[in-house]
Amino acid sequence: MPLLYPLVLASALFGIGLYGVLARRNAVMMLLGVELMLNAVNLNLVAFDAWFADVVHSGQVLTLFTITLAAAEIGLGLAIILALFRALRTVDVDEVGR
């Protein structure tokens, strides 16, 4: 399989995630965009691991680390968003910014 397939797919997912982070109004949807960008990074790590045929599997182990950190990040992020919602009764980033 050409190495380019996963790399181009990862670029597309990263761009879509960036659009989501910048354009979405709901703070939870912004977090979903961040998850999409992290998944693009995971795809790159796995693709380069398979291409390099790494003995210590650096790419795949780092992917596991990224998945764990993404889970920690979304847990903290959602806790902050819930606290924000309790304080302001909204999760709309435009209204929160005012």
């Binding site: 670029s11 761009g15 879509i16 995630g17 960036l18 659009y19 910048l22 109004r25 980033v93 435009d94």
Partner: peptide, 18 residues
Amino acid sequence: AEVTGNRWVAAVLGAAAA
């Protein structure tokens, strides 16, 4: 669920990054 007013800037930036 709506997107913010700068959705076209966001779309251009996302496409440029991709």
